[in-house]
């Protein structure tokens, strides 16, 4: 009984910590992105609210929450509100299978810093990553606007095509590791001492493309192409109802997928023990934020593909390359033993 209570407390604490950290980080990533984008364009970014503009997310949140709630005419009200949750929940659920560090011991119990240690973690990531498409699709349909609807259709087409490539790209890593469990994948990388990006550079590039596409980042952000679609599927949303969408898609989704990419290709928390007992956690965060930095860097540099090119690119180039890569990996694993 004592054991059960301990497990329950540990799970509750894990969920609370993950929720608090991810939502807080999501808010502060807006500050980070604005600052970063500013400096990339020789601007300064937010500087006025607080030192270095650090209180800007709070000011933004306050502003969004105090805005007048406006419902457009002819919307499907239930779906309109439900789409917000449908966008946010999968993005948060993604963090359930992110291992933030090596397992440690508290009071004689082994605790793994992951909310749900699933055997099919990577499959779960694919599922949740593309469940976010419902938020977009229903948001576009429910808001009774042509721009929003076109944006949501584009997003659905994007998700359907890039999900396949993402699966094949990650599958070659799963083949090497021999497991879909995130802990097993990281352990096998630590054991062999080589990160999988060395074996699988092509797969990593494909994964990166899919990461950008799934989270609606440039050069694949056709669903919110500002020049053509105003801002895509969330045109008709205002206030915090609008704020949820970029938070879920641009920040939480990107952060979670970067963490998964770290697990798959960069050896998770492996690294020299130079930060004492927390070195595993710090290495994991450093790698994740390095990837995030790269994603933002790409976002604020490159132009956007045309809508028709993006899907064509996925089916005609990325998918064959990923399948060839997968077959080659399978042969490699089979003959090496």
């Amino acid at each position: 009984m004592n054991d059960m209570i301990f497990t329950a407390i540990v799970i509750a604490v894990k969920i609370l910590v993950v929720l608090a950290v991810t939502l807080g980080l999501g808010a502060y990533l807006t500050w980070y992105e604005r600052k970063f984008a500013g400096h990339l364009q020789a601007r300064r970014g937010p500087t006025v609210v607080g030192p270095f503009g650090l209180l800007q997310p709070l000011a933004d949140g306050l502003k969004l929450m105090t805005k007048a709630p406006i419902l457009p005419k002819g919307i499907d009200t239930k779906l309109y509100y439900m789409a917000i949750m449908m966008a946010l929940v999968p993005a948060i659920m993604l963090f359930a299978v992110v291992p933030f560090g090596p397992s440690f011991k508290i009071m004689g119990h082994e605790v793994k810093p992951i909310v749900a240690n699933l055997n099919i973690a990577i499959l779960y990531v694919f599922a949740m990553g593309s469940m976010a498409a419902y938020g977009t699709l229903f948001a576009g349909w429910a808001s009774n606007s042509k721009y929003a609807f076109i944006g949501s259709l584009r997003k659905a087409a994007l998700i359907v095509s890039y999900e396949v490539v993402l699966g094949f790209a990650a599958l070659s890593v799963i083949l090497l590791a021999g497991s879909m469990n995130v802990f097993d994948i990281v352990d096998s990388q630590i054991k062999s001492g080589i990160w999988y990006i060395v074996y699988q550079p092509i797969s990593f590039v494909l994964f990166l493309f899919c990461l950008l596409a799934e989270s609606g980042r440039v050069p694949f952000d056709i669903q919110e192409a500002e020049a053509e679609l105003v801002t895509g599927y969330n045109v008709e949303y205002g206030g915090m109802k609008f704020g949820i969408f970029p938070l879920a898609e641009w920040y939480l989704n990107v952060l979670a997928l970067c963490a998964i990419a770290t697990v798959l290709y960069f050896g998770g928390w492996s690294g020299p023990h130079i930060f004492g007992p927390f070195s595993g956690f710090i290495w994991f965060l450093v790698k994740t934020f390095g990837l995030l930095f790269f994603v933002l860097w790409v976002h604020w540099t490159l132009p956007r593909y045309q809508a028709k090119d993006v899907v064509e690119f996925a089916w005609k180039y990325l998918l064959p390359i990923s399948i060839v890569n997968l077959v080659a990996t399978a042969f490699f694993v089979y003959f090496k033993g």
Binding site: L123, Y124, F126, A127, Y134, L137, I159, E163
Partner: peptide, 19 residues
Amino acid sequence: LAGLQLVIYAVAIVVFYVL
């Protein structure tokens, strides 16, 4: 089974229906 249910039914098939 749960993962496949999510990936195949909840995502791929229903997305096409909704589309």
